[in-house]
């Protein structure tokens, strides 16, 4: 039995989900592989909102989230692309070992990067493996007859889904191989979009922050901006902050590089948790004051904007101080 074979029991994070079979494995680049999953008895799979992700279990213990690359409309299979992260927890390496016929437990698709229904045009911006959810948006837009354009930054020779993007978008695709050319294209694109345009960005955090900041500076309202974090592998250590636990009257310092969850556990608090990477939704905490820096994949955009809850395993604070209902 390989690591990739179906574990004895599903991880709680994928409980109530699906048991799927690997139907195709095809390398995109040296480090990115596309994996197609289908129901073993050919049942139809649940449709999903463009930009959704799937939580996939690996081994007995691990779960990871991967963006679905299809349009989501009545899918017969689910396709994900996985970048091998050498120093990660092993999830991506296990995924790269999957072979046709292997079975995996997956969650139902989850939407946390949905297209705006009022958008008349989608401006998509992706760096590296960030192409995956954005490809889903481009496909869905094409199916629905909405226009989209894509700025795709990747290192020459290591771009996944380049051919599909070219075919799908034609002249609406701009490929960039370095920061300078990207910057030029971005500046131009941010100032010439029709008023119904929404922006969607996926890539490393620093990349997304820079794109979003430039959009804001160009007058883009917050409601037009959408972003999707990669997940735990890419998270930086963050800024230190202080947290006040109102009910227990405790004040704790959360240093850079240490999660809020770890800090609370060290202080003797028992917080339910499973994945510890912002995927499962177990570790949710009520926020009384302050603005969380949301870095999870679980909460929806609306929930994140509400700032009344946060996932303490990955999310931090935008402000030096925050108050929790604990």
């Amino acid at each position: 039995m390989t690591v990739a074979a179906l574990p004895i029991s599903p991880h709680p994070a994928v409980d109530g989900g699906l048991q799927l079979e690997v139907t195709n494995v095809s390398p995109q680049t040296d480090s990115i592989v596309s994996i197609t999953l289908a129901d073993p008895s050919f049942r139809k799979l649940p449709s999903y909102v463009p930009g959704s992700h799937l939580v996939v279990q690996y081994g007995e213990e691990g779960v990871n989230a991967y963006s679905l690359t299809g349009s989501g409309n009545a899918p017969s299979e689910y396709a994900i692309s996985v970048l091998r992260v050498e120093d990660g927890a092993g999830g991506s390496r296990a995924m790269h070992r999957l072979a046709v016929g292997d079975r995996v437990y997956v969650s139902r698709p989850r939407s946390a990067f949905a297209p705006a229904s009022t958008a008349t045009h989608h401006l998509l911006v992706a760096a590296g493996i960030g192409i995956t959810p954005v490809l889903s948006h481009a496909r869905a837009a094409a199916e629905r007859g909405t226009t989209s354009s894509l700025i795709y930054v990747y290192r020459p020779g290591s771009g996944a889904h380049v051919d599909e993007a070219r075919e799908l978008l034609g002249s609406a695709l701009t490929e960039c191989s370095n920061r300078d050319s990207f910057q030029e294209v971005l500046t131009e694109q941010l100032t010439k979009q029709g008023v119904g345009t929404h922006l969607y960005v996926c890539g490393p955090n620093a990349f997304m922050d820079s794109v979003l900041d430039q959009a804001r500076a160009a007058g883009w309202a917050e409601a037009r901006l959408h972003s999707e974090a990669f997940g735990a592998a890419e998270l930086d250590e963050g800024e230190p902050f202080t947290v006040n636990l109102v009910r227990s009257g405790l004040t704790l310092d959360v240093p850079a590089g240490v999660s809020l969850l770890e800090t609370l556990e060290k202080a003797g608090k028992t917080i339910p948790n499973m994945c510890r990477k912002g995927i499962c939704g177990e570790c949710v905490l009520p926020v009384l004051r302050g603005t969380p820096q949301h870095r999870d994949l679980y909460l929806t955009e609306q929930e994140k904007a509400g700032n009344t809850t946060m996932m303490c395993c990955v999310s931090r604070s935008e402000d030096p101080e925050m108050e929790l209902d604990l």
Binding site: L190, T191, Q193, V195
Partner: peptide, 10 residues
């Protein structure tokens, strides 16, 4: 007028 303006307009 709005149709010929761009995102950023108020």
């Amino acid at each position: 007028v709005l149709g010929s303006s761009s995102v950023g307009v108020r």
